[in-house]
């Protein structure tokens, strides 16, 4: 189980109603069920460390990443923490599916990453 550190006030946002939750970009589809998770880990590492893209390092310490933030858990031994690559992908696609209070941005659902960037990042994080 890997819940991103939740923010209690998030409960409030929920209680305020769905309309407030939908303030962001249009609600994109769920992760495509047939998504091919065969990205390029090296390219994913660049995305994970790019401020304008994945920017995973803003919140997560990762091996080799400089000046990481401390909001989310350290990304190591990932394969011991997710049963499948797909489960990890779902978490990165939209962490609020598993935990409505999750702070992590929904990288797939809100189209923060392109599909290629998304599968590349999944491949990289899965390799940690």
């Amino acid at each position: 189980m890997l819940f991103f550190r939740s923010s209690r006030p998030g409960l409030l946002a929920l209680s305020l109603g769905v309309s407030t939750l939908a303030a962001g970009p249009a609600l994109a589809a769920d992760m495509p069920p047939n998504i091919q998770l065969n990205g390029d880990a090296e390219a994913g590492e660049l995305v994970a460390n790019d401020r304008a893209k994945g920017n995973c390092v803003a919140c997560h310490a990762m091996p080799g990443a400089e000046s990481p933030g401390a909001i989310g858990p350290v990304l190591v031994a990932v394969q011991t923490r997710f049963p499948t690559k797909k489960a990890l992908a779902r978490q990165i696609w939209d962490a609020t599916t598993k935990n409505p209070e999750a702070v992590m941005p929904p990288f797939g659902k809100h189209e923060i990453l392109t599909n290629k960037e998304f599968v590349d990042v999944v491949e990289y994080i899965w390799s940690l």
């Binding site: 550190r5 939740s6 923010s7 209690r8 006030p9 998030g10 409030l12 946002a13 305020l16 407030t20 939750l21 303030a23 962001g24 970009p25 390092v57 803003a58 919140c59 000046s67 990481p68 933030g69 401390a70 909001i71 609020t96 702070v103 941005p105 929904p106 809100h110 189209e111 923060i112």
Partner: peptide, 27 residues
């Protein structure tokens, strides 16, 4: 204050209540 907004889906409170005192990169 408590509503999520933007592509990144944060409320004001997510950063400045629930995660206040932690670090975003080195900030």
């Amino acid at each position: 204050y408590f509503a999520r907004r933007g592509q990144l889906n944060f409320s004001c409170a997510h950063c400045h209540m629930g995660n206040s005192g932690t670090t975003l990169r080195t900030e």
